[in-house]
Every structure is written in C-alpha cells, then in structure tokens.
Nucleic acid binder design. Sequence first.
RNA 1: GCCCCUGUGGCGGAAUCGGUAGACGCGCUCGACUCAAAAUCGAGUUUCCUCGUGAAGUGCCGGUUCGAGUCCGGCCAGGGGCACCA
Length: 835
Amino acid sequence: MTDARFDPAHADLRWQRAWDAARCFEADSASARPKRYVLEMFPYPSGRIHIGHVRNYTMGDVLARYRRMRGDEVLHPMGWDAFGMPAENAAMEQGVHPAGWTHANIAAMKAQLRRLGFALDWSREFATCDASYYGHEQALFLDLYEAGLVYRRASAVNWDPVDRTVLANEQVIDGRGWRSGAVVEKRQLDQWFLRITAFAEELLDGLGTLERWPEKVRLMQENWIGKSQGLAFRFALSNGESVEVYTTRPDTIFGASFVAVAPDHPVAQGVAMNNCEAARFNHRCKQGGTSAAEVETAEKLGFDTGLGARHPFTGAYLPVFIANFVLMDYGTGAVMGVPGHDGRDFDFASKYGLPILRVVAPSADAADAPMTEAEPGDAVLVHSGFLDGMGVEEAKRAVIARAEAEGWGEGKTVWRLRDWGVSRQRYWGTPIPFIHCAACGVVPVPRDQLPVTLPEDVDFSAPGNPLERHPTWKHVACPQCGAAAQRETDTLDTFVNSSWYFLRFASQPADRPFDPDEVAQWLPVDQYIGGVEHAILHLLYARFWTRALAVCGKISVQEPFASLFTQGMVTHETYRAGDGSWLSPSEVRREGDDYLRIEDGSPVTLGRMEKMSKSKKNVVDPDTIVERHGADAVRWFMLSDSPPERDLPWSDSGIEGCARFVQRLWRLFGQFDAAAEGEDRALARKTHRAIAATAEDIEGLAFNKAVARIYELASAIEKAPPSADRSAAIRTLLLLAAPMMPYLAEEGWAAMGGSGLVANAAWPEVDPALLVEDEVTIAVQVKGKLRDTLTAPRGLPQAELEALALASEKVQRSLDGAAIRKVIVVPDRLVNIVA
RNA sequence: GCCCCUGUGGCGGAAUCGGUAGACGCGCUCGACUCAAAAUCGAGUUUCCUCGUGAAGUGCCGGUUCGAGUCCGGCCAGGGGCACCA
C-alpha cells in the first residue's frame, strides 16, 4: 500500500502546501478554546539559520503542535529582530543597503524555517525594521516619556576619532577601534536613558513570582539588580574635608583600620594635585584589564595619602589610602577597610602592615582568637564598645540607629542596577522621535507625524552616522514654534525592539501598537524558549517594558513570560591540522581511532567538543543536513539523547541513526491493517503507558525522554504479532511522533486512511485501566543486597510477599541459616531481609 | 577572587518519594539474509576474577539509613556567570 522508503524531499513540500492551504497554524484570538502562547526568541536575520536556532525552534514547535493536539488555541509566531550593526557592516563592506541586505536574509531564512516544518503563524510575521513596527515603538517611547521614564543626560561613549563613530564595547579591541585601529577615546555625549532603576524593587520582587523560570536565571537577574542595605556615613578628614563611605557591614565599624577611596574620587584627585606620586598612582590604576576576573586577581595596590579619617566612635585617626580595588561608580566611591572581616581588606592590610582587628567571634570566649584570614563572621560582636555581645544583625541596626540619632550617617539601600542608555549613534535602528529646537529645547514629534521613518538614500562610504550627514532628513520645523530645528539623529538600542515584540505578535492593529484586550487574551507567554545568553539583559528589559507599559495603562500584565526555558548549545568536535589551523568536519575523515586530513592523509588532532562557531570551523549547515536526511530526521536528532537544557553534541552517526529510525517508522506504518483482528492486552498496556509517559515528558520539556518512549513503543510493536491492538498501537505511535516528525506523520496518516491532517488530529486518549499492571516484579534483598527477583500479583499483602521472599532458594542460600532480625516490605516493589 | 551548575559504561544519557543502577539511542562485536555490499533482521555489549550467576561499581573521602546515583559533611575535577559592588 505504501512506498518502501519514505522520501522526505517529496513529502516535505507536499505537506507545507497542505498546511498553508488549511491555514492550520493561524491563531484565532476570538477562539473559545484555551489559549496557549508558545514563543521562541526571534532571530537576528544574519543570513542563514544556525543549528542552534534549529534546536530552539524544534523544541517550541513540538510544544506548539502538542498543545494543538490537546485542543488548545496556540499562538506560535515568528518574526525578525532586524535592526542592528551587521547590516551596517555589510553596507560598508559590500556596498549594499542595510534594508536590502536584511530583507534578502529574511527571505532566505524564512525558506529554511518553512523547510524544517515549523508550525508557525506566518500571518503575524513582521520585522522590527518595518516602519509599521518601529513607528508604534516610537509611540510607546513617547508614552514612556510622558510617564517620566525617559530622560537625557551626558554619558561616556567609545569614540573612534578616525571613523568618527561611536563603537560598541565589542568593537574596541585592546583599546583600539576594530576597523580603524585608532586609539579609542572616551567622549561625553548627551544621550537618551530609560529609567529602569525606578522599577528596581519591582523587578527584584517579581522574580519571586516566576516559579517556572530557571533558578539560575532568577539568580543572575537578582545579582544584576544588586540590592544591598547598609550605612552611609561621613568620616571627618584631618585636612578639614570629609569623605562619605558606604558599608553593608556597619556592625564591623570598630574593626575599621583604614579608609580607601577610588583613584578617581575627588579626595584622590585633590591629593594628586599637590603630589605627583599620587597622580602617577591614580594614572596607573586606570591601566590594565577591566574584566572582573582580570581585575580581581590583580594585585591590590594602595597609596597612603597621609590624611587621617576620624573614627566616629573611637575618635582615632585612620590612614586614608587611594586603592585600586575601590570603584567610583558604586556606593560613594569610598569604603572603610575592615581587614578582619573582608577578604580584600585583609589582603590589603596584610600588604601594607595595617592592623587586623577581630570584632566578630564565634563566641565571646574567642574574642582574642588569632585571625589568619578574613572571617565573614555570623555570631557575636567583640571589642566593639556598646555593640559587644550583640549578634551581627542586631549590631547593624544599632550602629545605623546611633548614626542617624547623632546625625553623621544614615541607613541606605544601594542598587547596582543603572539606568538603561538607549541612544545609538547609528543609522540602522528606530529613530528616536524628538526634535531639537534652539528656542523650545527637546520637543517630542507630534503623534500624528509618526512614524519618523529612516531615509533610504544614505551613504555609507564616509565615516560617521549617515543620519547626521544626510542633506535634508534632519532639518525640520520645530513642532512648537515652527522655527528651523533638527531631528534627533540617535536611534534606539535594538534591545528596545525585542522588549515588546511579544505584544505585537499577540495583537497587531494598524493604528496602535496593540490592542490591550487581545494582548490579555494571550499574555503572559506560556512558554518562552531561548539561549541563556539572554538571561540578563533581554529578559530584564522585556520585564521592564512590560511593567512600564502597565504603569502607562497600556496593558494589564506585569510579567511577560510565565515560564522560561533556556536550551543548551549544539556542540561539535574540533579538528586541527599539524600546523595548528582549524579544519572543518568535511576536510577530515576517520579511520578507526585516527583522524586524517582527506586532502593529504596527514594526521589531525581531535580537539574538545565546543560550541559550533565559524572561527573553529566546527559548524554543520542545517540546509545540507536537511537536504541529506530530511527535516524529520534533523528535528528528531535535535530532541534525542541530550536533555534540552544541556549541550547537544552533533554527530554524523547520530543523525544517520535518526534517519534510519524515520524509515523504520515508515515501514511500521506500512504494516497498519485496519482489518486486523484479535486482542493483545500486553501491547495495549504498553501503548497506553507510552501515551501517558510521552505526554508527561513533552509537557515537562523532557524531549529526550519522550523520544525514548517512542523508541520503546516502536520496538514493542515490531515484536508483536498482528492484532487489532497492534494496528491501534501503530496509529497511536504515529500520533505520539507527530509533533516531532510532522512530515512523516502526515504521510503515514494519509497512507493509513486517516481523515484530515495529522496537524489537526487529537492526541490519543489514555485508558487509565490499561496503565495498571496486574503483575509486578519484586526485588528481594538480603541485608540490602539484591539476591533474587520474583513476580507477584499486584497489591499482594505484605505478609504474603514476605513469605514468598523467604521461600526463595537463593534467599535461603544467602541467609545461610542466619537468624532474621527484621524484614522490610515495600508493597509492589521489594522485600529486604535483615539478618 | 566570588557566585552558580555538572560529574553514572567506549559515547549521549535514564533511574517519580531513598527501594532491581545503566532504560532509550549511538558506537562496537558476532550471527542471519546476499555472489558481494548497502539496507534490514537477530544476539551480545559496566568492570574484575577463581566464570559463580560470584565480587566490585554512579568523581574522591566520610556520615545517616534495613537500603544512598538520590540525603548530610568535607574534598577533587570540568563548565558557566560576574560587578574587586564595600
């Protein structure tokens, strides 16, 4: 009845057309069925789909297709995060227009996605570079402006004096511009900021409600927001000035033996004016790496200013140092050094011979125990005057209370989170809808003049921002006074584009960004899936925008993503030739345990499994493998073996195994016989257990386990003789595999005479009666070691199980006549005899 | 430096609540089919030995328990994150 082999090339095209014709994946906001929003992070249109995208979208697709089979109305959209630097780079390097380059990439990648059989609602597709998207973004930006969440201030940028452009951190290599090689300068520019710090507390508290987010991501965000509570207070200095410090450990104030200020702190700058050694020291501190790991392992350096700081309680004068480990932009840029109870202060004090005082001890008796390292301390205060005997928390409160009563300090909450700078001095982004007027200042573009569109006739041959030097674009009349004025030429950070796209997917009226009622139908996203690299910025910004829009009355949801899943990377072996250069998998062949270069047979060194990257040449192209093995096999491989949150090692033999399984299923489908008769209770049980287990695994995103269930059922069916139950099992198997291998499933469904499309079919019902086994295997242990297994009817009373176990010959042999002290019986599982 | 995660066969991994460790897949070995190969099908595949159906075994050391991959304490290794954040 069917072809001997399943031909993906033929089937794939056929069913893509069938799905399109039936418009089965278009979500209906008016549907009465339960709404389900499945979303994967939308891609940047770089030109080609990466294998990591394939894994990401396959997971979301299985979930979306499964939910549809369970009767939900599923929204599973796709679009393009289309603004960004690569398009401008292409424009500069290849002379193409960013828009043309981007749209060509989108077309190519869309074709790739369609080929992979994803059940996407293409009717809602958009690119963030469409004026019909970014125009609404401009309106939302004005909403935030009116709500007081947008402001301008001066802020430093990396300025490339040769290219006359602002560089991103990644474009600055060893302090030089990546293209020009010129030494990068810090330059102050007036820039636009979003007041995310106004939401610091809410964003932190909100994390507590995100139970279906990975603990890891919540922790990363929590650390990023960085709330700390402590005491800010002033030290009077010996030169008549004063310095404010901030500490989270006010309880240890009696242990302070020095004060340290940042090299760019006013006190340090003041000292440097009259002391060239201090100036040299300050300068030296600005060199060297800025990354945490580099800085933290760097040697702690200090410069004794000769100044003294008067301790508020003891009246003693503490030496004031300039120190390289104090940061100007956190807290007050100055700290009190407590070597006994802070690791950095300990290192510093040891180096400069400063006293190391114990002020917290495990007990009052241990007040004079020697200190060999900094102890965080969590017990009792000692050598601390009025604090002696108090616990750490009590002492913190007491010091803050005293400082506030005496007026020299106050309890303070400090946040690490800073406001979000959204200005980019680039062409390919959302124009910021403001106009600069000499008389009126910064004036918002009137809403009836939105969108502010990008000019198309731009020139990338000269350095600098094309918007800035466009002959006419920026010259406009002031909306308020009508005088000649200039448009803002900065565009928005692309993270703004991705901070609300999930709302536009849910609802896209032409005249507004979205309809609040329709958004309420779909939001929050039931399952968001993407890479962990977006754990902090994208997800925090999206949470911020959602809350900010709620404050503006635009929507009612607080948190955009109810459940988040971060998938692992796809990795591949790396290969290196004798000269150390990287080789691509296609240049290498394997002979036994040896790897050889195909070209000349020279030996190849096998490197680590690493994330696929062009620089290491360990990439596989999705198109090539889809061509060779079909989309179903590729999807199956993406789901098999590795748990989705872990890395997936790509292997050729793995994908070949998947392709074989596709054919094996196809042969099995060919054995479906609607007329078969006879019962097979055992197979029916296995079938229903597989339905229940696969559903559970898919719902828990344990796709690797769901895959194993399907393999198991397939093997059981192959071994079973023909029967009505066997035919039913084959049909069930097809349905279980349908979300994962949609093309094969449609083809098989049609061959079996199923009605309609499998894409619209229902998930098989489980018969609970068939989930229960009536016989169970009992493990019999003697002193905790397995000695025998026996089969017993389910639910056998404990006493009978015990008797059965004791009757076992192997058990008696192990006991060897020893007296039985105790017997532990776990019903339907095991008997443990303790002798 | 700090924080987090992960360590189970040749490999990816499974094991609900502490209850038969190694499901399922890949690879490999042997066999069937074939002139042959591919494909397919069948059997086997943690280690060790005295080959019994013994002993050991989930990174290492210890603990709790009738029983530990799972819980607790201390290490080690690999990976990830970061902000010297006071």
